[in-house]
Design a protein around this nucleic acid. Structure first.
Lengths: 187, 187
DNA sequence: TTACATGTATACCGATTAGTATAATCGACA
DNA sequence: TGTCGATTATACTAATCGGTATACATGTAA
């Protein structure tokens, strides 16, 4: 694990979020990271591969953080589901929140056969699958439907937060999630 | 209203959706529309201005269509709110659905001072305001909160549909919307 | 016919892009 | 001191980008 490699990854992640992926040139990335193109291309054989790595790392970080939080602070499956959006809110409203990669990436790479688009879709499904498992463990009948709805709220909140940082979007997404979850539990 | 101008607009709109805005060159647009760059730049003084016009037309079309549908098929304010997502579903699942411009555009132009980003944010707020008015007319107490939640579901559904066409996203968004609306009505 | 507006065709410009080649520099280790 | 791998510095390529200049073809109206 080279320190420079990590530096390039985090720099790229931040720039992709603030400037857009396609609008961020390789030259800008290396200049901001304080290195050169030669070094970047030593660790990442192409810009596309760098994008994919940024996405992977970002998604991994989020999923791990979320799962650790839920594992550490809840006991029963039902409680996990109910606290899900509390931690999502904590993640999104954090000052160093860097966006959710797969949402922006799928917009910038709309073609379905594009590797970046494919990875984005995969990560999106993976996240929904994670929610679905929480719902299943909480004995919710329509775990599939509820997980889809919650993932819609999540996507919408991220999108809204991206449009206008510091909006109330996540707060109200949390309230909506609670209503949907409670409705599914008592059914 | 020149026919060529309209042709360029619709061609650009379609290409922006399928290839992305930044990834679609002016040359590709004119070639697909069957005209030349000279003509395009006669009607639109820059690519950015073309993008803005595409966004404006798309948003106008959607809002007008939606409002006409609601006006023609419902009588009471409450009914309008309840049927809102029925028509949203109809719009999104239509074969020639061209995406919701302001969602993708804000992702491709993340800088807050960018004209395209600003227009996107404005249109997003405008749409939410429209929902809020429906909620207010239906005598809903927290019209502000409900409109935000419904707009989150809308954004999430559009995002999901964009990631994977033909998904069940809109269907379940509709169900979630019904739950949230009913909850707000009986409160 | 003349005149004018609309659109086409094509070549061009300067800037920027991703990616490469080559040589110089640095620090650690023996 | 001398060597080696990692990193830097810089110049370069080929392609693409948005946008412009110029010349030509077209149809329509007086």
């Amino acid at each position: 694990m080279s320190a420079l490699r990590e530096k390039i990854l985090s720099t790229a992640s931040s720039l992709f979020q603030t400037q857009g992926i396609n609008s961020t040139g390789v030259d800008t990335i290396v200049a901001t990271a304080g290195t050169t193109k030669m070094t970047l291309y030593k660790y990442f054989s192409s810009k596309e591969l760098l994008i994919l790595e940024v996405l992977k790392e970002g998604h991994q970080d989020f999923q791990t953080w979320l799962n650790d939080k839920l594992s550490a602070n809840t006991k029963h499956p039902t409680e996990k589901l109910q606290k899900l959006f509390d931690y999502i809110e904590e993640w999104i409203t954090a000052p160093d929140f860097n966006g959710i990669g797969f949402i922006k990436a799928s917009a910038e790479f709309p073609k379905e056969d594009n590797p970046v688009h494919k990875l984005s879709t995969e990560q999106s499904l993976q996240f929904r699958e994670y929610i679905k498992q929480l719902a299943t463990e909480a004995n919710i009948q329509d775990a599939d439907g509820l997980s889809l709805q919650l993932s819609l709220l999540f996507k919408g909140a991220v999108q809204a937060e991206h449009m206008q940082r510091g909006s109330d979007a996540v707060k109200y997404a949390k309230i909506a999630a609670k209503i949907l979850i409670d409705g599914s539990l008592t059914r």
